[in-house]
Nucleic acid binder design. Structure first.
Lengths: 156, 156
DNA sequence: AGTGAAAGACTGTGGTG
DNA sequence: CACCACAGTCTTTCACT
């Protein structure tokens, strides 16, 4: 009863967590291998994975690609300052207009949003930030260009 | 000649890029399906994927998990200010001591590093930042707690 | 480097406790 | 909810182009 109020986390048992652990380490692991590791048969693992995907616990599977190889060597975090008090929806729509924006979060502190930008090089980055500044209501930006990637841990 | 000077990107032909595209969209896609999409047989796709993994172009495959479901609902970006001029190696060692740190980058601007922290809740976050501040040479921190995730695009 | 064929492994469904 | 069994599919190797 009252399933809508039950947070999804409550539906994850230790087996689910172990399976998620296996898949975050190697998304191409076979159900049989995962089953060996968690002590389940392959069909049982498949049913759980299907359920986790259907429930939105697992949003998808992706390959981790070395960004340098793709030629996107330039990265920056940009604090965005807004005129007035924008709704998350407005922010999402406005920031989403710039394709180089790969991540964005509304944050506490003086800035309204923190935006993660990937670009091919410095001129490309500069141009992307310029387009960001031209979005309606964007008042000011403060950029920190990434010099080197120190840590990039997969999910816990 | 002079292969060491050749950037890895130069070794990627359009077929490789298409295959990488398929795998970033769905890391569990079968070789046969990828082959259909890019116009290659399954064995040919497998050989290319194996080579991309061996060369480090593809660093691995992972599941995208909804962080809220795991109970890590609290997220912050923390600017770290250092005493003196630390090497990237020192930074990596020092920041890596705090397990809640899931990402870290050395950056331009007044801060020395930008650190991404995931925690279960605000007390947990506070404790993690406290441990960060106690690392040798960490002089000051400035935190921005994430209120909401606006955009989280998969790779470009 | 790619193809096609073949053996073995894996997936995915249906039946059962 | 998990297991077993089985039919269909996929992976992976090998010989050939």
């Amino acid at each position: 009863m009252l399933d809508v109020l039950q947070r999804p986390v409550d539906r994850l048992d230790p087996l689910d967590r172990q399976i998620i652990g296996c898949l975050t380490r190697d998304a191409r692991a076979t159900y049989a291998v995962i089953g060996d590791e968690v002590g389940l048969s392959a069909p049982a693992v498949k049913r759980r994975v299907d359920r986790l995907v259907a429930d939105g616990v697992i949003r998808g599977f992706t390959a981790l690609v070395d960004p340098e190889v793709l030629g996107w060597t330039t990265e920056a975090y940009v604090e965005v300052f807004w005129e007035g008090t924008p709704s998350p929806l407005e922010l999402r729509r406005s920031l989403g207009e710039v394709p180089e924006v790969v991540g964005a979060w509304s944050v506490t502190g003086s800035a309204d949003a923190l935006v993660h930008i990937l670009a091919a090089d410095i001129p490309h980055l500069e141009e992307a930030i310029e387009r960001l500044r031209q979005q309606p209501n964007v008042h000011q930006t403060r950029s920190e260009v990434v010099l080197s990637r120190l840590i990039d841990r997969a999910r816990p």
